[in-house]
Structures are given as structure tokens and as C-alpha cells.
Design a protein around this nucleic acid. Structure first.
Length: 559
RNA sequence: GUCCCGGUAGCUCAGCUGGAUAGAGCAACAGCCUUCUAAGCUGUCGGUCGCAGGUUCGAAUCCUGCCCGGGACGCCA
């Protein structure tokens, strides 16, 4: 089955009708034809669709837009385009009032497709890899990671639904300085737990999680490591620390409903010689030079601010070097598109990474780097800076425990990723209609409740329901909204804006509540209409549940 | 100083490929429960779209400059 998208079909029909009318009226040749722009007017009085075609043609046809509009209208085949009424307005807008009987088809489509409704082949099966979170395994996931996790996971869901083949990957920085540092930090805490003296490294990890780790180490192994040579001991702590912290990260992500398909180890890049190879490739292509005892990448050739060091004076690599190798490896794995989701604190790193991609001979736009902007927590109207418990940044786990999983997911995805986010914890926790999560979930529960009562009252929905009875204003609003869903999905996917989903589902919930207050669904006096409305309710329920599922929020049957 | 993100109603934010009178929620105000969950609905009030130029028939949207807020500018990761 190809794309079943009623609204899309209708729009396509109308666009073709307009193009044909333009040609028939000899206003423009097919080569000159501007793209037909259809918009849905904000004001219902302006029809279901409007086009600015006449204004666009003003220059080509050398006539005034109103006159052009009249000629288009005179030549359009209304019936073929399902148009009921046309009017010309303002400077030359053509407003179309559609024959809305097609709208009820959306219910049947939703029944046929169930949770597949909204799916499209927009992505044409392209292989996309989304790399996100990728926090260093030197501590616990905190607030910023949570936003990236929610954004990445929802984007992946949405893109899958829009016909992309998506792989979710986590890059584990298990090599380099910070891991040595981790081992030394663990060592210092280990000694401390055993009442011995050992200095904490200068940039050591002070977090509470490292103290807990050290305690567990003592519980399991006693003072065993005190006897060892320092080298040997640090080696053991490295491994122990990595395993311990990575396990916790994995657990936290699982608890946040964020699954990954693959976990890619930085160390593997070294053992497979890929880091060395990346440097050599760049050298062969002439983007490498040596200065001050270091090896440099001439990234300024590709728009970076300054050139970057790849191999330091001491012979070790900078962070960038394995990262270049990593990205080349991703491309070599055959993905059509790479998406990286980075925290705001890494945005200065974007241009050098993109320079490297190009220097290696790849198209620039194969890599799209999205930035998850800063998050500020607010509680009791005040900005929360430090966690009460750890004295460090608030962890993801603490946030979920405090405000709940559903609200946390919803709030992170509610806003555009590149907007700073003020996270209102009081609102997220409140069980009131002010809280958008509850508002939407309640709409779902409300429908479930109606359906339960329908059953209790012995109302059974027949196979043949007369959907043409759904003509009330609020019903038409709901039908149109349901029809929008496939387009919302594909647009959220192609523009990588998953925040469109909570926006949409909020509007759908709002339409539902409004309908609920205006019309009575269960009416034993009018079984035929009741059945049509129950069908509508079921369709709405399916779409709310699916949209919530995309953003990782539960759709409760009752509240 | 350079670069990135943001600046839209009192607050938090939407605003598509440039389109008609710039939207939503909250707050404020006025209403709605003998009716399927009031965790809901309806209405009113509220805007120099940071500022100034430019492009265009038309700019919140595109271009340039400036102002404000946040962030990044390491042979750290």
C-alpha cells in the first residue's frame, strides 16, 4: 500500500486543477508555471484552501491579479477538484470551499490502518543514523542529556513513521584522558573509603556516584587493590569504572524509554587502526601540516575559524581525531544521512566536524548536527541550579523521580530543540488542566470512558455506520484535524522538528474536549448518530494514542 | 573580539515554501455541572513581532548593520 493520505490527495487534485486552469486560460506555459501554493486560511471565512496563484502570475501574464484570478476561476473544473464554491478576495487570493463529504473517509482509513495511520513513504527507505546522548561514561546522566535523549528518541520514532530506516547509536568515549582521570578519581575514593590517603587528580570527578562506586568496590574486593602496583590497579579501576557507569547510563536510558540499536566504542577505533587511517587520508589529500611539534588539520579550508591540532606535541591524539575517524566509519557503514544531537555546550565544535567530513571527500550535507539547547529548571517560581542531594547538576534520574516519566518526556519535546527551555517543575507535577500532559491524556481517557459506557448501555457499533451524519461544526473540526496527521508526521520528520507532535496532539485534544462539551455522544434516542460519533471517537483515540506513543508518553484508559 | 542559538501578548512559547485582520496555553476578567469524568468548555481583555535600513505587489519570516540575553571560542573531553 502506498501513501494513504486523504488530505494530501485532495490537495493534489486541487493543485492540478489550478495548473490546468492556468494553462487553459493561457496565462502561463507549463515551463513558466510557478509552484502552486495552497494554504489553509486561518479564518474559516476564507475557505478551506486559498492560493496566491494570481499574484504569482501577475508578472508573467502582465495583468492585474484580480483579473487573472477571474480567468483562473472561469477555467477551473470544479467538480474534478471536489470544489463546492470559489471566491476571489483581497488582492487576488482565490478561496476554495471544498465539498467536505470526503472528510469522513479519514475514519475508515484510521480503522483500516490503526496505529499505522500517519505512516508515509516520505523517507523512501533512506538509511538514517541518529547518534545521540553519547555522554562520557564518567558520571551520571543529567538534565541536558535528558533533553537530548527525549529529542533524539522522538525524532527517531517520527522519522521511522515517515518511511526512513533509522538506527539509533550511542558513542561511548571509553578512551582518552578522561578515562585515565576517572580511574584516578576512583582510586582516590577507594583509598578514602579504606581510610588511606591518596590525592584526587586536579580535574578529578567529584560526583557522589564515584564515591558509591568506590564503596561497592570495597564491598566486593576489600582492600585487595591496595597491594597492587599503581599501574595494575588503575587498569583494573578503569575497567571497573567504565562497566559500572555505563551500566547505570544504560539503565537510566531504559527507564526513560530510550532504546539504542548500537553502542559504539571509541576504543575500537584505535584497535582497528581507523584513527591512524583517518589522519593518513587527510594527509594524502593535503590537509595536514606540522607546526610547533604538532600535527594540524587545515580545517579553515572548509570554513572553520582556525586550524585544529590532531596529534599533540606529546604524540597523543586530541578529542577531534578519533571523532573524525568515527564519522568516516559511520559514512562507510552506508548511511544516507547522519544526524548528531549535541548539547549546547558543544555547538562550537560543529564547524570543525563538518570541515573534516568534507575534507575526507564527503558531501557536506550528509551530516546534520542538531543542538539541544540549554534547560533551566524552575521550582516554586525560582531557578533550580544545584541538586539538593549531590551538590552537582540535577540528574536525569532525579528529575524523572520528581516529576514523573510522562511529564518529563512531554515537556522536553514540547519546545523547539534550539530554543532554551524553561522547565516548570510545578506545572509538570500538577494534576490539573494547566498541565498539557494531563490535558492530552485526559482526552484519551475521556474517550475510553465514553466507549465503556456505550458498551454498558448495550450500544453496539454496526459494520455499516452512516458517517455522513457527522456534519456538526466540532465534528468537522475533528475530522480535519485527523486528516492533518500524516502531513504533521512527514513535516516533523523532514524538518527534524518533533515538537510538532505535542503541538498537534494538544490541538487534537482541545478539539475533542470542545466537541465533548458541545455534543452528546451517547444518545439512545438517536442510535444512528450515536454510532457515527462512536466511530469518530475511536478514530480520535487511535490518533491520540499514536501521537503520544511517538513522544514516549502513556495514553491511560482512565484517570 | 569571532562564531552559534534566542529576542513575538504581563509570563511560557507556536508561527510552514515570504501571503489576507500575527496564534495557543497560563495569568486577569465574565460565564457554564438535574446531562457521557468540571483533570472539561465558552467569551472578554491583552502585541511598536528587539531596533534601523534593504529586497518584494506583499516581510515576524529573506539580506545587511546595530542592541539585549544565553552559550562556545584549549596541543581538555
Amino acid at each position: 500500500m502506498l501513501e494513504v493520505n486523504i488530505v494530501g490527495q485532495i490537495e493534489k487534485q486541487l493543485k492540478e486543477g489550478i495548473e490546468q486552469a492556468v494553462i487553459k486560460a493561457e496565462l502561463a506555459s507549463p515551463e513558466e508555471m510557478p509552484e502552486v501554493v495552497l494554504e489553509t486560511p486561518k479564518d474559516k471565512a476564507h475557505g478551506d484552501y486559498a492560493t496566491n496563484m494570481a499574484m504569482q502570475l501577475a508578472r508573467i501574464a502582465k495583468k492585474n491579479p484580480r483579473q487573472i484570478a477571474e480567468e483562473i476561476v472561469a477555467n477551473i473544473d470544479q467538480e474534478a477538484a471536489s470544489v463546492k464554491e470559489i471566491e476571489i478576495a483581497g488582492p487576488g487570493f482565490i478561496n476554495f470551499f471544498m465539498d467536505t463529504s470526503y472528510l469522513t473517509d479519514v475514519i475508515e482509513t484510521i480503522f483500516d490502518q490503526g496505529s499505522d495511520y500517519g505512516q508515509s513513504n516520505n523517507g523512501e527507505g533512506k538509511r538514517v543514523q541518529i547518534e545521540f546522548v553519547s555522554a562520557n561514561p564518567t558520571g551520571t546522566l543529567h538534565l541536558g542529556h535528558a533533553r537530548g535523549a527525549a529529542y533524539g528518541d522522538t525524532l527517531a520514532n517520527v522519522m521511522e513513521k515517515a518511511g526512513y530506516q533509522v538506527e539509533r547509536e550511542y558513542y561511548i568515549n571509553d578512551a582518552g584522558n578522561q578515562i585515565d582521570n576517572l580511574a584516578k578519581s576512583i582510586e582516590a575514593r577507594y583509598f578514602e573509603v579504606l581510610g588511606e590517603e591518596k590525592e584526587m587528580p586536579e580535574d578529578g570527578y567529584q560526583g557522589r556516584d564515584i564515591i558509591e562506586l568506590a564503596k561497592q568496590l570495597v564491598e566486593e574486593h576489600g582492600d585487595h587493590f591496595l597491594q597492587q602496583e599503581e599501574e595494575e590497579r588503575l587498569q583494573a579501576f578503569r575497567k571497573y569504572g567504565l562497566d559500572y557507569l555505563l551500566d547505570r547510563i544504560k539503565q537510566d536510558l531504559e527507564d526513560f524509554r530510550v532504546p539504542f540499536d548500537s553502542w559504539f566504542s571509541e576504543t575500537s577505533l584505535y584497535t582497528n587502526g581507523l584513527v591512524e587511517q583517518a589522519v593518513e587520508t587527510l594527509r594524502d589529500k593535503g590537509y595536514i601540516y606540522e607546526a610547533d611539534g604538532a600535527v594540524w588539520f587545515r580545517s579553515t579550508d572548509f570554513g572553520d575559524d582556525k586550524d585544529r591540532v590532531l596529534v599533540k606535541q606529546d604524540g597523543t591524539y586530541t578529542y577531534l581525531t578519533p571523532d573524525i575517524a568515527y564519522h568516516q566509519n559511520k559514512i562507510d557503514r552506508g548511511f544516507d544521512q547522519l544526524i548528531n544531537i549535541w548539547g549546547a555546550d558543544h555547538h562550537g565544535y560543529v564547524s570543525r566536524m563538518q570541515a573534516a567530513i568534507q575534507a575526507l571527500g564527503n558531501p557536506k550535507d550528509i551530516l546534520d548536527i542538531k543542538i539541544a539547547q540549554m534547560v533551566n529548571l524552575f521550582e516554586n517560581g525560582e531557578k533550580v541550579k544545584m541538586s539538593k542531594r549531590t551538590g552537582k547538576a540535577v540528574t536525569m534520574k532525579e528529575l524523572i523521580e520528581e516529576v514523573g516519566l510522562d511529564a518529563t518526556r512531554y515537556f522536553f519535546i514540547m519546545r523547539s530543540n534550539d530554543s532554551h527551555l524553561d522547565f516548570d517543575m510545578d506545572l509538570a507535577k500538577s494534576e490539573s488542566n494547566d498541565n498539557p500532559v494531563y490535558y492530552v491524556q485526559y482526552a484519551h481517557a475521556r474517550i475510553c470512558s465514553m466507549l465503556r459506557q456505550a458498551e454498558e448501555k448495550g450500544i453496539h457499533v454496526e459494520d455499516e455506520v452512516n458517517l455522513s451524519l457527522l456534519t456538526a461544526e466540532k465534528e468537522v473540526d475533528l475530522l480535519k484535524r485527523l486528516g492533518d496527521y500524516p502531513q504533521v508526521i512527514s513535516e516533523a520528520a523532514t524538518k527534524k522538528m518533533p515538537h510538532r507532535i505535542p503541538q498537534y496532539v494538544f490541538d487534537l485534544a482541545s478539539d475533542l474536549h470542545s466537541f465533548y462539551n458541545a455534543e452528546k455522544v451517547l444518545d439512545l434516542e438517536n442510535i444512528e448518530l450515536t454510532q457515527a460519533r462512536i466511530a469518530l471517537m475511536k478514530a480520535v483515540r487511535t490518533v491520540i494514542a499514536d501521537a503520544l506513543d511517538l513522544i514516549g508518553v502513556h495514553a491511560p484508559d482512565q484517570m
